[in-house]
Design a protein around this nucleic acid. Structure first.
Lengths: 217, 217
DNA sequence: CTTCCTTTGCGTTTATCATACACTCATATT
DNA sequence: AATATGAGTGTATGATAAACGCAAAGGAAG
């Protein structure tokens, strides 16, 4: 037998109040009823993996189209009950503002955002897959300026720092973090500030489009 | 139609005289007869992708088992003539000494090593795939100590430097390169030297097993 | 054996970047 | 007005990176 079933799965990430969140679906039927799983669908022979996952994002989840990257393909023989199904996985990134503005509410799916540090009980092998997706995201954040997709404009440096600290598992000195990003020309002061919160208002920044990729940490 | 054919493809890399080489197969039948292609095979429903590609390496190519990593899965609709075939790609790394010692000669396959800077005319979409595999290798070399697989023991620093320069497309100062690797404890002097060539004999080194991963360039 | 050529190894200086740490500023809360 | 909270600024010190001149060890040629 040379024919195989393939599913696509996507970990969609966003940042809310300095915390990285992942979108999971509540499964309403067996198997794994009541568990949380990654969104996805089965691949037809007339579409690419990328087209398929874009359809999932837009049509099934009611989300705006977003930046995606392919991660890896899982092929364990027992990862699916009964039949053999491979899974090609993706990460999707969407900033919180676009998310709130363009999201369509759908009735038949139950979706929730989870902090990546507290993933709920998941079905299938999705715990392993989620772990790998987060690890992939971590490496991409280190080695590229992919974070600018999650921070489109008018973000504060403390917000950005919290994300680095969460995903890299490190603590960074406030003042050195600020110095580094500003001195390297990574971020630009917009002139506005972020009022209405406790303490001194934070300045708002945006990423400089013209700066080249490099490892920050 | 939800069923799909999947093939595996592997770019096997080694280093010979400071140059990175990739192994390609000469295709003896149509389509793409006479062109060069990546080794691989079709996936059965009773094996994982990794098992499949390991079989290709050992049984079809007569090579010793080697370090492999999965790269990405290609799913363009027109990448294969007639039917729809997805391709999951791998990189494989093997050092030259093990290669020479343990390689079994097979009659029915024509294999050649090509410098990664001069890839011959390839069949299917393998030119794009090879490009992506080399790019993947580059990123892994930057962000991990994967190179030690290609340099198992008793290598010279100029050799190692040449590989960095080739894959990263940079030129490095001889003296600073040496200083960096030695000071960081990355390499250890074996005490032996590499005689019989022009100029002063180069010292032989090996990687320190206990050093942690970090970006060198 | 001497001279030249080739390639590798070693050291120093300078500039750049990273780390550590103390203080001030602007708002909300009481 | 006093306090709490979170944000912004500066400076000294150490570590790492970059640039560069020169010596050493062999082979090749006379």
């Amino acid at each position: 037998m040379k024919e195989n079933l393939i599913e696509t799965l996507i970990g969609i990430f966003t940042v809310d109040k300095g915390k990285i969140k992942i979108l999971l679906m509540h499964k309403k039927d067996e198997p794994y009823k009541g568990y949380w799983i990654l969104p996805g669908s089965f691949l037809s022979s007339d579409e690419t993996l990328e087209d398929n996952i874009t359809d999932v994002v837009c049509d099934e989840l009611g989300l705006p189209s977003m930046y995606i990257e392919q991660c890896s393909t899982f092929s364990n023989l027992n990862r699916y009950p009964e039949k053999r199904v491979l899974a090609t996985t993706f990460i999707g990134l969407i900033d919180n503002i676009t998310l709130v503005l363009k999201r369509k509410e759908l009735d038949n799916v139950e979706l929730s955002w989870f902090d990546i540090d507290s993933i709920p009980k998941t079905g299938y092998d999705h715990d392993k897959i989620i772990e790998k997706l987060i690890d992939y995201l971590r490496k991409r954040i280190i080695s590229s300026n992919i974070l600018r997709i999650l921070f489109p404009s008018d973000f504060t440096l403390p917000e950005l720092q919290k994300v680095y600290e969460q995903i890299l598992g490190i603590t960074i000195d406030r003042r050195n973090f600020r110095k580094k990003l500003i001195n390297l020309g990574y971020v630009i002061d917009t002139g506005d500030v972020n009022e209405g919160y406790m303490g001194r208002p934070a300045k708002l920044y945006r990423f400089d489009e013209n700066v080249e990729e490099r490892n920050l940490f």
